[in-house]
Design a protein around this nucleic acid. Structure first.
Lengths: 164, 164
DNA sequence: TCAAATTAGTTTCTATCGCAACGATGGTCA
DNA sequence: TGACCATCGTTGCGATAGAAACTAATTTGA
């Protein structure tokens, strides 16, 4: 009943299909992680990323946050607006360029960051623990290559050119 | 100015943080893939998954599609509704249980599937090509372990129990 | 046997997403 | 200087997501 469509070539099985597997894995991991902070701090993924980015760099513009955390500028804008309302992030005008503003964690924001960062690292550590030590480096390399290559493919297609 | 929050332990760097890296990679890959079919067939990811699942199994219920493709039942419902409107998927009542229905590809749906599956496989092949051959198996194993483990962690947290 | 619980699938409702348009500012160059 | 273009960040809006409520059908078990 099924395989009449699969024909000669290697059949397309969703559960073995790389983009699908990546998506499922990323979603489940993301979901598991957010259970650690979402309820406790009442923030979502974008807010979490802004907090972590500012915790890492101390002070930066919304644009820089977007670049570093791979988020659309509207996502950054809304996440920052929420964190500002909650007094976790402060905004300081840049006198040299009034279009942008410098953002940084308030003391309350830093408190949350210091509370949240160790649990996040612990989570990642616990996850990686299940991967064979010998496989870990290979996994990291592969993830980087796949990210890089697919970005390039997407760019090629966007340009309308033949993917080389 | 930044690292005063990082303190003694290994600092949390977003770009090295596994859940973040997985998410970015999955998004870019998914995005690149959808450029191959989205414009040509006017379908999105959920419709693509339904097509592929039915192409693989021939005939199944909406619930089974949801389980196999890891999609919420409302997502399946809407994707199927769209494919039905476009005459790519047909519905046949199950006389033994009228709550559910058997879904399958129409000839037109099969045409699209046969056109789409090889490009998808080619895309995945081209992607995997960039990963060192020696790293590929390790990558697959790691992806499985991470998916499995994070599902378990999420379940543990949901139960309110201490993650063992 | 029939009331209560369960299940498949749809619909409603609300939240979030990202594109596009926008206002405000800054840069370029004739 | 001033007309034009680029950039930062916000907002309006249509599309999409998933939670919860719902309908209809089936199963359970007293």
């Amino acid at each position: 009943m099924p395989a009449q469509l699969g024909s000669a070539e290697a059949a397309l099985k969703l559960e073995d299909f790389l983009p699908y597997r990546l998506n499922v894995c990323a979603n489940i991991v993301s979901n598991a992680l957010s259970r650690i902070y979402a309820e406790r701090y009442k923030i979502g993924v974008p807010e979490w990323r802004v907090l972590v980015t500012l915790g890492q760099f101390g002070m930066m513009t919304a644009k820089a946050i977007g670049i570093h955390s791979h988020m659309h500028k509207t996502k950054v804008s809304r996440a920052v607006a929420m964190l500002e309302r909650r007094k976790l992030v402060a905004r300081r005008a840049n006198r040299d360029d009034l279009r942008e503003a410098f953002l940084s964690l308030t003391p309350a924001g830093s408190d949350i960051y210091r509370d949240l960062a160790p649990s996040a690292l612990e989570f990642a550590r616990k996850l990686m623990e299940t991967v064979e030590p010998a496989d870990r480096a290979a996994f990291g390399r592969a993830l980087n290559k796949l990210t890089e290559r697919s970005a390039q493919i997407a760019a090629d297609i966007a340009k309308g050119s033949n993917p080389g």
